[in-house]
Simulated scan of single mutants.
Amino acid sequence: MKLRLCHLYPELLNLYGDRGNILVLCRRAEWRGIAVEVTPVSLGDKLDPQGYDLIFLGGGPDQEQGVASADLLAKGPWLKEAVEAGVALLAICGGYQLLGEYYRTGSGETLPGAGLFAAYTEAGTRRLKGNIAIQVEELEVDRPVIGFENHGGRTFLQGARPLGRVIYGDGNNGSDGTEGARYKNAVGTYLHGPLLSKNPHLADYLLRLALQRRHGEVELPPLDDSLEFAVNEAVYRRFLPTKGKW
Protein backbone atom coordinates (compact mmCIF):
# COMPACT_ATOMS: atom_id res chain seq x y z
CA MET A 1 0.00 0.00 0.00
CA LYS A 2 1.27 3.48 -0.89
CA LEU A 3 0.28 7.01 0.13
CA ARG A 4 0.85 9.78 -2.41
CA LEU A 5 1.12 13.14 -0.67
CA CYS A 6 1.30 16.55 -2.36
CA HIS A 7 2.92 19.41 -0.40
CA LEU A 8 1.80 22.72 -1.90
CA TYR A 9 4.16 25.71 -1.68
CA PRO A 10 6.53 24.26 0.96
CA GLU A 11 8.96 27.17 0.58
CA LEU A 12 6.25 29.86 0.95
CA LEU A 13 3.69 28.59 3.44
CA ASN A 14 5.37 27.04 6.48
CA LEU A 15 4.61 29.12 9.58
CA TYR A 16 4.86 27.70 13.11
CA GLY A 17 6.26 24.35 12.05
CA ASP A 18 3.39 23.46 9.74
CA ARG A 19 5.74 21.16 7.81
CA GLY A 20 5.69 18.99 10.94
CA ASN A 21 2.26 17.80 9.86
CA ILE A 22 3.88 16.16 6.83
CA LEU A 23 6.40 14.43 9.09
CA VAL A 24 3.65 13.13 11.39
CA LEU A 25 1.60 11.75 8.51
CA CYS A 26 4.65 10.08 6.97
CA ARG A 27 5.78 8.46 10.23
CA ARG A 28 2.32 7.20 11.19
CA ALA A 29 1.92 5.69 7.74
CA GLU A 30 5.41 4.18 7.63
CA TRP A 31 5.05 2.65 11.11
CA ARG A 32 2.17 0.66 9.62
CA GLY A 33 4.12 -0.48 6.59
CA ILE A 34 2.56 2.08 4.23
CA ALA A 35 5.05 3.61 1.79
CA VAL A 36 4.81 7.40 1.40
CA GLU A 37 5.75 9.49 -1.62
CA VAL A 38 5.88 13.26 -0.94
CA THR A 39 5.87 15.57 -3.95
CA PRO A 40 6.47 19.32 -3.55
CA VAL A 41 4.33 21.41 -5.92
CA SER A 42 5.00 25.13 -6.14
CA LEU A 43 4.56 28.23 -8.31
CA GLY A 44 3.94 27.37 -11.93
CA ASP A 45 3.88 23.62 -11.38
CA LYS A 46 0.99 21.58 -12.73
CA LEU A 47 -1.16 19.86 -10.14
CA ASP A 48 -2.34 16.44 -11.29
CA PRO A 49 -5.77 15.97 -9.66
CA GLN A 50 -5.52 12.19 -10.08
CA GLY A 51 -1.95 11.88 -8.85
CA TYR A 52 -2.35 12.22 -5.08
CA ASP A 53 -4.22 10.79 -2.13
CA LEU A 54 -3.68 13.74 0.20
CA ILE A 55 -2.82 17.41 -0.41
CA PHE A 56 -1.28 19.63 2.28
CA LEU A 57 -1.16 23.43 2.34
CA GLY A 58 0.41 25.32 5.25
CA GLY A 59 0.14 28.87 6.57
CA GLY A 60 2.07 32.02 5.76
CA PRO A 61 2.08 35.80 6.31
CA ASP A 62 0.20 38.19 4.01
CA GLN A 63 3.16 38.77 1.67
CA GLU A 64 3.67 35.07 0.99
CA GLN A 65 -0.07 34.54 0.73
CA GLY A 66 -0.17 37.24 -1.92
CA VAL A 67 2.52 35.47 -3.90
CA ALA A 68 0.73 32.14 -3.67
CA SER A 69 -2.76 33.52 -4.26
CA ALA A 70 -2.62 34.04 -8.04
CA ASP A 71 -0.96 30.67 -8.60
CA LEU A 72 -3.44 28.89 -6.32
CA LEU A 73 -6.29 30.53 -8.21
CA ALA A 74 -4.94 28.95 -11.41
CA LYS A 75 -4.67 25.59 -9.65
CA GLY A 76 -8.18 25.94 -8.20
CA PRO A 77 -9.97 23.82 -10.84
CA TRP A 78 -7.45 21.00 -10.35
CA LEU A 79 -7.86 21.18 -6.57
CA LYS A 80 -11.64 21.05 -6.88
CA GLU A 81 -11.44 18.12 -9.27
CA ALA A 82 -9.20 16.27 -6.84
CA VAL A 83 -11.47 16.87 -3.84
CA GLU A 84 -14.59 15.95 -5.80
CA ALA A 85 -12.86 12.67 -6.67
CA GLY A 86 -12.28 11.92 -2.97
CA VAL A 87 -8.73 13.18 -2.43
CA ALA A 88 -8.14 14.29 1.18
CA LEU A 89 -6.80 17.77 1.87
CA LEU A 90 -5.50 19.60 4.93
CA ALA A 91 -5.02 23.38 4.81
CA ILE A 92 -3.69 25.39 7.75
CA CYS A 93 -4.31 29.07 8.54
CA GLY A 94 -3.22 31.10 5.48
CA GLY A 95 -3.69 28.06 3.26
CA TYR A 96 -7.19 27.64 4.69
CA GLN A 97 -8.00 31.30 3.98
CA LEU A 98 -6.84 31.01 0.36
CA LEU A 99 -9.17 28.07 -0.26
CA GLY A 100 -12.24 30.17 0.56
CA GLU A 101 -13.95 32.69 -1.71
CA TYR A 102 -11.56 35.53 -0.88
CA TYR A 103 -9.30 37.06 1.77
CA ARG A 104 -9.46 40.84 2.29
CA THR A 105 -6.23 42.06 3.93
CA GLY A 106 -5.81 44.86 6.45
CA SER A 107 -4.65 47.19 3.66
CA GLY A 108 -7.89 46.59 1.76
CA GLU A 109 -6.41 44.32 -0.90
CA THR A 110 -8.68 41.45 -1.87
CA LEU A 111 -6.94 38.15 -2.60
CA PRO A 112 -9.30 35.89 -4.57
CA GLY A 113 -9.49 32.36 -3.22
CA ALA A 114 -9.77 29.01 -4.93
CA GLY A 115 -13.42 28.72 -3.86
CA LEU A 116 -13.13 25.21 -2.44
CA PHE A 117 -14.75 26.22 0.85
CA ALA A 118 -17.96 28.26 0.94
CA ALA A 119 -16.41 30.85 3.25
CA TYR A 120 -14.67 34.22 3.14
CA THR A 121 -12.07 35.95 5.31
CA GLU A 122 -11.56 39.60 6.24
CA ALA A 123 -8.80 41.12 8.35
CA GLY A 124 -9.76 42.16 11.88
CA THR A 125 -8.44 44.93 14.09
CA ARG A 126 -6.65 42.60 16.52
CA ARG A 127 -5.06 39.19 16.22
CA LEU A 128 -6.83 36.13 17.54
CA LYS A 129 -4.10 34.15 19.22
CA GLY A 130 -3.61 31.64 21.98
CA ASN A 131 -4.24 28.02 22.78
CA ILE A 132 -7.43 26.53 21.42
CA ALA A 133 -9.42 23.32 21.82
CA ILE A 134 -12.26 22.14 19.62
CA GLN A 135 -14.64 19.21 19.45
CA VAL A 136 -14.67 17.30 16.15
CA GLU A 137 -17.59 14.89 16.04
CA GLU A 138 -16.34 12.65 13.22
CA LEU A 139 -13.30 11.37 15.11
CA GLU A 140 -13.40 7.82 16.47
CA VAL A 141 -11.47 8.74 19.63
CA ASP A 142 -13.48 10.87 22.04
CA ARG A 143 -10.83 13.51 22.76
CA PRO A 144 -10.47 17.20 21.96
CA VAL A 145 -8.39 18.53 19.10
CA ILE A 146 -5.92 21.09 20.43
CA GLY A 147 -3.55 23.59 18.87
CA PHE A 148 -2.37 27.18 18.79
CA GLU A 149 -4.03 29.88 16.73
CA ASN A 150 -2.52 33.19 15.63
CA HIS A 151 -4.46 34.92 12.87
CA GLY A 152 -5.65 38.41 12.05
CA GLY A 153 -8.32 37.22 9.64
CA ARG A 154 -11.93 36.51 10.54
CA THR A 155 -13.38 33.65 8.55
CA PHE A 156 -17.13 33.35 8.09
CA LEU A 157 -18.75 30.21 6.75
CA GLN A 158 -21.32 30.61 3.99
CA GLY A 159 -22.61 27.10 3.66
CA ALA A 160 -19.44 25.19 4.50
CA ARG A 161 -19.75 23.09 7.62
CA PRO A 162 -17.21 23.71 10.38
CA LEU A 163 -14.44 21.29 11.22
CA GLY A 164 -15.42 21.58 14.87
CA ARG A 165 -16.97 23.60 17.68
CA VAL A 166 -14.83 25.77 19.93
CA ILE A 167 -14.40 24.62 23.52
CA TYR A 168 -12.03 27.47 24.32
CA GLY A 169 -10.19 29.90 22.07
CA ASP A 170 -11.45 32.06 19.21
CA GLY A 171 -11.78 29.79 16.20
CA ASN A 172 -12.87 31.15 12.85
CA ASN A 173 -13.84 34.62 13.98
CA GLY A 174 -14.08 34.81 17.76
CA SER A 175 -17.86 35.14 17.76
CA ASP A 176 -19.83 32.22 16.32
CA GLY A 177 -18.11 29.26 18.02
CA THR A 178 -17.02 27.55 14.81
CA GLU A 179 -13.51 26.47 13.86
CA GLY A 180 -12.28 25.48 10.45
CA ALA A 181 -14.27 24.21 7.49
CA ARG A 182 -15.11 20.89 5.85
CA TYR A 183 -16.01 19.96 2.31
CA LYS A 184 -16.05 16.25 1.45
CA ASN A 185 -12.55 15.03 2.48
CA ALA A 186 -11.05 18.54 2.58
CA VAL A 187 -10.30 20.14 5.95
CA GLY A 188 -9.30 23.74 6.65
CA THR A 189 -8.29 24.97 10.11
CA TYR A 190 -6.45 27.72 11.98
CA LEU A 191 -4.74 25.28 14.36
CA HIS A 192 -0.94 25.34 14.28
CA GLY A 193 1.32 23.39 16.60
CA PRO A 194 2.06 21.49 14.39
CA LEU A 195 -1.52 20.36 14.61
CA LEU A 196 -1.13 16.61 14.09
CA SER A 197 1.69 15.99 16.58
CA LYS A 198 -0.69 16.54 19.52
CA ASN A 199 -3.73 15.04 17.80
CA PRO A 200 -2.96 11.50 16.57
CA HIS A 201 -6.68 10.77 16.32
CA LEU A 202 -7.04 13.55 13.71
CA ALA A 203 -3.88 12.38 11.90
CA ASP A 204 -5.25 8.84 11.56
CA TYR A 205 -8.63 10.18 10.45
CA LEU A 206 -6.92 12.02 7.59
CA LEU A 207 -4.83 8.98 6.71
CA ARG A 208 -7.94 6.82 6.44
CA LEU A 209 -9.66 9.40 4.23
CA ALA A 210 -6.58 9.62 2.02
CA LEU A 211 -6.18 5.86 1.59
CA GLN A 212 -9.80 4.86 1.06
CA ARG A 213 -10.14 6.35 -2.44
CA ARG A 214 -7.65 3.87 -3.95
CA HIS A 215 -7.86 1.04 -1.44
CA GLY A 216 -11.42 1.09 -0.09
CA GLU A 217 -12.08 0.96 3.63
CA VAL A 218 -8.74 0.79 5.43
CA GLU A 219 -8.29 -0.44 9.00
CA LEU A 220 -5.17 1.17 10.41
CA PRO A 221 -3.35 -1.01 12.96
CA PRO A 222 -3.31 0.77 16.34
CA LEU A 223 -0.17 2.54 17.52
CA ASP A 224 0.98 3.26 21.05
CA ASP A 225 -0.22 6.86 21.34
CA SER A 226 -0.04 7.05 25.14
CA LEU A 227 2.58 9.82 25.07
CA GLU A 228 0.76 11.83 22.42
CA PHE A 229 -2.56 11.58 24.24
CA ALA A 230 -0.87 12.49 27.55
CA VAL A 231 0.34 15.69 25.88
CA ASN A 232 -3.10 16.28 24.41
CA GLU A 233 -4.78 15.95 27.82
CA ALA A 234 -2.16 18.00 29.68
CA VAL A 235 -2.36 20.91 27.26
CA TYR A 236 -6.15 20.75 27.12
CA ARG A 237 -6.50 20.89 30.91
CA ARG A 238 -3.78 23.51 31.37
CA PHE A 239 -5.67 26.12 29.35
CA LEU A 240 -9.22 25.04 30.12
CA PRO A 241 -10.89 28.06 31.81
CA THR A 242 -13.87 26.08 33.17
CA LYS A 243 -14.87 22.47 33.49
CA GLY A 244 -15.29 21.02 30.00
CA LYS A 245 -16.43 17.78 28.43
CA TRP A 246 -13.18 15.86 28.97
Results as ranks from 00 to 15, higher is better:
residue 75 K to F: 00
residue 173 N to T: 09
residue 128 L to H: 11
residue 134 I to E: 00
residue 65 Q to T: 00
residue 2 K to A: 11
residue 240 L to P: 06
residue 65 Q to G: 08
residue 107 S to Y: 00
residue 200 P to D: 12
residue 229 F to V: 12
residue 136 V to C: 11
residue 145 V to T: 08
residue 4 R to A: 03
residue 24 V to T: 15
residue 172 N to L: 04
residue 55 I to E: 06
residue 106 G to R: 13
residue 26 C to S: 15
residue 106 G to V: 14
residue 152 G to T: 11
residue 103 Y to G: 02
residue 136 V to S: 01
residue 221 P to H: 07
residue 63 Q to C: 02
residue 212 Q to E: 15
residue 198 K to W: 04
residue 23 L to F: 11
residue 209 L to S: 01
residue 238 R to N: 12
residue 194 P to E: 08
residue 84 E to I: 02
residue 198 K to M: 12
residue 110 T to P: 01
residue 85 A to E: 13
residue 49 P to L: 02
residue 82 A to F: 04
residue 33 G to K: 09
residue 83 V to G: 06
residue 20 G to K: 00
residue 127 R to Q: 12
residue 223 L to D: 06
residue 41 V to S: 00
residue 119 A to V: 06
residue 58 G to C: 09
residue 210 A to P: 14
residue 148 F to V: 12
residue 178 T to S: 12
residue 170 D to C: 15
residue 171 G to W: 13
residue 191 L to T: 10
residue 55 I to T: 04
residue 132 I to T: 14
residue 170 D to E: 15
residue 31 W to G: 02
residue 149 E to W: 10
residue 185 N to I: 03
residue 67 V to G: 06
residue 131 N to K: 14
residue 23 L to A: 15
residue 86 G to D: 04
residue 47 L to C: 02
residue 163 L to G: 04
residue 63 Q to E: 15
residue 56 F to Y: 13
residue 49 P to E: 01
residue 185 N to D: 15
residue 97 Q to W: 09
